[in-house]
């Protein structure tokens, strides 16, 4: 993993401009508060994970001791400190999803991709990560791939989503049964 760490990190000009805007949102002397959005920018720029050099860079931008930036980056699970695949699959394993068949979803992913939770496929396309409640229990079971939620999953719909991603197609986001948000009108309910 260590040889994946780049020696240096700098924002692209666009991100640098964006960072300035973000920092300006906070009152004078409280710029440190911009650390979360800036780390997020850095992670997005670096392909979904946060190398040490990026954390050091952000600490420097905000004049905060490096150790404080590392504390923040390691505290939040949404910052990945190691390289991830192009698609980071976050499988919810909290009770509502589990009751609604979350284990089957997990097994489907693992069989389809040939990896276990915490691993990345050799082609660098997929990483599976188990997470706690994603906050969409109403449409359980749920998984998150990068920034998108996929809800009301079944093993079949999971297979389709993964096939689409592997083939470079964009799968349908949101409820796979067509449920309209958390609506109780019955549309799209099983």
């Amino acid at each position: 993993m260590n040889n994946m760490q780049p020696k240096s990190f700098f924002f692209t000009p666009e991100n640098e401009a964006e960072a300035k805007k973000i920092i300006a949102k906070y009152p004078a002397g409280k710029q440190v508060s911009a650390i979360l959005p800036l780390l997020d920018r850095a992670q997005r720029q670096h392909g979904g994970w946060l190398p040490s050099a990026a954390i050091v860079y952000v600490a420097g931008l905000l004049s905060v001791p490096e150790v404080k930036a590392f504390e923040v980056a390691s505290f939040y699970t949404m910052f990945n400190l190691e390289p991830t695949g192009k698609y980071l699959i976050q499988l919810c394993r909290t009770t509502p999803c589990w009751l609604k068949g979350g284990e089957d979803i997990a097994r489907t992913c693992e069989t389809r991709l040939g990896i276990k939770a915490g691993e990345t496929t050799p082609d660098g396309l997929f990483t599976i990560k188990e997470v706690e409640c994603l906050g969409a229990c109403v449409n359980a079971p749920v998984m998150q791939i990068n920034d998108d939620y996929y809800e009301n999953l079944t093993p079949d719909s999971v297979m389709k989503i993964l096939d689409d991603l592997a083939a470079g197609r964009k799968p349908k986001v949101g409820s796979q049964t067509g449920r309209c948000g958390a609506c109780s009108c019955g549309k799209g309910d099983e």
């Binding site: 001791p65 490096e66 150790v67 404080k68 590392f70 504390e71 390691s74 505290f75």
Partner: peptide, 9 residues
């Protein structure tokens, strides 16, 4: 010297 930190959670 800011040498120590609490990492992870």
């Amino acid at each position: 010297t800011h040498e120590l930190g609490g990492f992870y959670r």
